[in-house]
C-alpha cells in the first residue's frame, strides 16, 4: 500500500492534569477520506487542532511523508500542507467571494494593487472544479448558502496547497440538501487523488457514503479503526456509542 501522507503515533495531549488525548494513532492516505468519529468530548477537535498547529502535542509524533515534524504555529502546519476548514469557516460575510478566497494571500501587481480579474477567474475556476458554478465571484459571501461557503473554504484551502484537508463537522449546521452538496464536494476532492481528507462527523450515514477508512475516538483513546469494508454496521454502531467505554462500565457495575 502507498505511504500515508500524514501519520500520527501515540499522540498524547494533556491540558494540565486533564488528558484530552491519551495516545492516538492515525494514518491518512492521499486520495482517501478518513472519517474521524466519536461522541462529544471524545477529543476529535483537540486532535485536529494539534495537527493544525494550534496545540503542541504533549507526547507522540506527527509524520509528514514519513518525516517527523513539529508545528509551533498554524502557519507551520499550513506550510506543511495541512489545510483546516473549521466550523466557523474563517469567512467574512460582507466581502466578495474573491476577496474571501484570497484573504491574507492576495495576488499583487506593482504598487500593491490587486490583480482583481485574475483573482476573480481563479476563485471561480477553483470553486467550479469542486462543484459550484458561482457565476459572479464579486458577490458578497453573505449571499451564499452554508454549503456554498463550505465549498469556498475548501477550494481556498486546496488552492493554497493543502495536501491534507481537515473538515471539522462540515455538515452539522446544514440542511439535508446542502449536506449532500458538501458530500459531493468531498467526493470531488477525493477524486483528484492527491489530497488526503480527514472528515469529522457525527453522522453514520455520511461517513458510510464518503469514507474509505474510519477511526473511532472515545475519551481520548482510539477505540477502533478500519476500512469501510472491514467495519460492519453492528460494529460501527457499537463504536459510535463509545464501545470500550460501555464495556468498562459493565465490568465496573458487575464488580459492585
Amino acid at each position: 500500500m502507498a505511504e500515508p501522507y500524514l501519520r500520527v503515533e501515540g499522540l498524547v495531549k494533556r491540558f494540565g492534569p486533564f488528558t484530552a488525548l491519551g495516545g492516538v494513532d492515525l494514518e491518512v492516505y492521499p486520495g482517501e477520506v478518513h472519517c474521524l468519529l466519536g461522541d462529544n468530548g471524545a477529543g476529535k477537535s483537540t486532535l485536529i487542532k494539534t495537527l493544525a498547529g494550534v496545540h503542541e502535542p504533549t507526547e507522540g509524533t506527527i509524520y509528514i511523508e514519513g518525516k517527523p515534524v513539529s508545528f509551533r504555529s498554524p502557519r507551520d502546519a499550513s506550510d506543511a500542507g495541512i489545510g483546516t476548514v473549521y466550523q466557523d469557516l474563517a469567512i467574512n460575510q460582507l466581502l466578495s467571494v474573491t476577496r474571501n478566497f484570497f484573504m491574507g494571500r492576495e495576488l499583487k501587481g506593482p504598487l500593491g494593487t490587486l490583480r482583481m480579474d485574475e483573482m476573480n477567474k481563479i476563485a471561480h475556476d477553483e470553486m467550479l472544479k469542486i462543484g459550484i458554478d458561482f457565476s459572479d465571484p464579486t458577490q458578497a459571501v453573505g449571499t451564499m448558502s452554508g454549503g456554498q461557503r463550505q465549498t469556498l473554504a475548501i477550494a481556498r484551502a486546496i488552492y493554497f496547497g493543502a495536501k491534507v484537508l481537515i473538515l471539522d463537522e462540515p455538515t452539522s449546521a446544514l440542511g439535508q440538501k446542502q449536506q449532500m452538496g458538501v458530500l459531493k464536494t468531498i467526493k470531488k476532492v477525493r477524486a483528484r487523488g492527491d489530497i488526503a481528507i480527514i472528515f469529522i462527523t457525527h453522522n453514520e450515514i455520511h461517513s458510510r457514503l464518503v469514507g474509505d477508512r474510519f477511526t473511532f475516538l472515545a475519551l481520548g483513546q482510539t477505540i477502533g479503526a478500519g476500512t469501510n469494508a472491514e467495519i460492519g454496521d453492528e460494529e460501527m454502531r457499537r463504536l459510535m456509542s463509545g464501545g470500550a467505554e460501555m464495556g468498562d462500565l459493565k465490568e465496573e457495575l458487575a464488580a459492585i
Binding site: 473549521y86 467574512n92 466581502l95 484570497f102 484573504m103 491574507g104 499583487k108 500593491g112 494593487t113
Partner: peptide, 24 residues
C-alpha cells in the same frame, strides 16, 4: 478598492478572527 491593504481593512472590520486565521 484596489489594493491588498484595502482587502485587509475590510477583512479586519468584518470578522477579525477570520481575517487573522487567514494571515491578515
Amino acid at each position: 478598492s484596489r489594493t491588498q491593504i484595502g482587502n485587509w481593512i475590510y477583512a479586519t472590520g468584518d470578522n477579525k478572527e477570520a481575517a487573522r486565521a487567514n494571515g491578515v
